[in-house]
Amino acid sequence: MASLMQRASRAAFLAAAIVWAGLLPAQGGAPKPVIEKAVKGQQCVEDTEYMRKNHMKVLNHHRDKTVIEGIRTKKHSLKECINCHASEKTGSVAKSKDDFCVSCHTYAAVKIDCFECHSTKPQGPMTMHPLNADTAHYKHKLAAGAKKPVSVDDMAKVAQ
């Protein structure tokens, strides 16, 4: 119930932020989010578009499975997000304003609560890892892996 409300409020915030940004293009508005390309891996565990819109649902679902039931599958775990998305410069997803999570969340004005408790840094070294036996099933998604910078339109789509 709470997560539902949180989701709803987050979506509302995001939508409000997008509308706000959309209304003020002439003034330049807030600096657009810098989406750093993941250091490790070539393709996210879900489609990029899906993740932009739904990463919080995915994470919330997985966190309850992990904390309460002890299911620690890697696919949707925050730890794995961090492993891939930590910045090469800061080694973190939320240390500086351009880091993966913070950059977008600042733009959308949505407070992240994750890193009050979770480490923002990956475990182990920051190197590109090739697909292995555990991640080989993501291979089919690599084809759709062409990245482009996020535009305001993209963000607006996410909000809807």
């Binding site: 009050e116 979770h118 480490s119 923002t120 840094k121």
Partner: peptide, 22 residues
């Protein structure tokens, strides 16, 4: 201040105790 272990989330304002190294 981000001193947590990646495997052991813990944070300000929350209560904690031994987890049997879950």
């Amino acid at each position: 201040n981000d001193t947590q272990k990646p495997d052991v989330p813990r944070g300000i304002g929350c209560v904690e105790s031994c987890t049997f190294c879950v």
